[in-house]
């Protein structure tokens, strides 16, 4: 099964030509559709014009072009809302990949937009975005939730645009304050760089990879493992040789070596990338088990999903604190 998944991933990134065997091809396409990566696959494969495969690719490209346009336009609107203030938010994840024209952003399916701002700018950014039509979801608009988010979480309660219905997450950290994993976001902000000609910033290429790894292995983004793996793969490929060599040291510096070790293991394991072991070693046996179940669609996939889900929440918030949260909610509602 591992072999099959390695082969599929190699087709997906264009490392191997598509199989001549039509049954394998049909299995691969079904897998890519299930994993929501058909848009990315369509971006790298050459389908014979007029073939059904070309129809399927065309369909996927049109679908993913929508996500790309949405991200670009929402980024444009954020810029507009902050015009003249001097605040330069850092784009995270998909919006950054698209703004930087990275291959990781091509064909990738996304649903919302994430930005990171310095805590000192938070209030102003929030006020201006609200002014520009992004509103708190009705469910989190009460004072308690607002306080709770501000005190414990790494992001404001999500805002949804009143007209366009898009969602924006405004982060001021990369993970909740309560998280067991505590990446040094200040250090990463320090290394952020401006996008030329725009009042916007992005993380450095190295930190971009690190953040993706944090998101995948520390924040529960494993529902579609193939999609996460492709993202890590393309982000890693975008690193220069020097950046690649300095990656793990940087991960230690920003206290994210755990997720990065897991990400590098995945890249070696599933893409056969030749990545030197800079002391990162292997992720825990349990985590490796879970990743395998998911990636290879093994028997315990569902169980692994739920365990990883729990794990991600455990990483984010200790149970005791959750209980306290519930307790306060209860009192407030009295």
């Amino acid at each position: 099964m591992k072999q099959e998944i390695q082969e599929f991933l190699a087709f997906a990134v264009g490392d191997l030509p598509l199989p001549a065997n039509t049954e394998t091809l049909s299995g691969f396409i079904a897998w890519a559709q299930r994993e929501h990566i058909m848009g990315q696959v369509a971006a790298v494969i050459d389908a014979e014009p007029g073939s059904k495969l070309s129809d399927i690719c065309e369909n996927a490209k049109l679908r993913s072009s929508y996500d790309r346009r949405m991200l670009t336009y929402e980024t444009d609107r954020i810029k507009r809302a902050l015009l003249g203030t001097g605040v330069e938010p850092i784009l995270l994840k998909g919006s950054a990949y698209v703004a930087e024209h990275l291959f990781a952003g091509v064909g990738r399916r996304v649903s919302d937009i994430d930005i990171l701002v310095e805590e000192s700018d938070l209030e102003q950014v929030e006020a201006l975005l609200k002014e520009a039509g992004w509103q708190p979801e009705a469910t989190t608009e009460n004072e308690y939730d607002q306080r709770y988010y501000r005190r414990w979480m790494h992001e404001l309660p999500p805002l949804r645009h009143a007209v366009r219905r898009t969602i924006i997450d405004i982060h001021h950290r990369l993970l909740p304050r309560t998280s067991r994993l505590n990446p040094d976001h200040l250090e990463m902000i320090k290394e952020a760089r401006a996008i030329e000609g725009e009042a916007l910033r992005v993380l450095s290429p190295t930190d971009r990879f690190i953040h993706s790894a944090i998101h995948v292995f520390g924040d529960g983004a494993m529902e579609t493992p193939a999609r996460s793996f492709l993202e890590l793969y393309y982000l890693y490929k975008d690193l220069s040789k020097a950046e690649g060599q300095a990656l793990y040291a940087r991960a230690i510096e920003v206290r994210s070596d755990g997720p990065v070790a897991a990400a590098l293991w995945v890249l070696r394991q599933y893409f056969g990338l030749d990545i030197a072991d800079e002391g990162q070693g292997l992720p825990s046996l349990r985590l490796r088990f879970l990743i395998r179940q998911l990636a290879e669609n093994r028997r315990y996939r569902r169980l692994a999903e739920i365990l990883l889900y729990i794990r991600s929440h455990y990483m984010r918030m200790p149970v005791r604190q959750l209980a306290r949260h519930l307790w306060h909610k209860a009192i407030r509602r009295a």
């Binding site: 507009r80 902050l82 015009l83 003249g84 203030t85 201006l128 002014e131 520009a132 039509g133």
Partner: peptide
């Protein structure tokens, strides 16, 4: 609701 800040002399 507005798209963002504006000033008389902005072009």
């Amino acid at each position: 609701m507005t798209a963002g800040p504006n000033k008389e002399d902005w072009v």
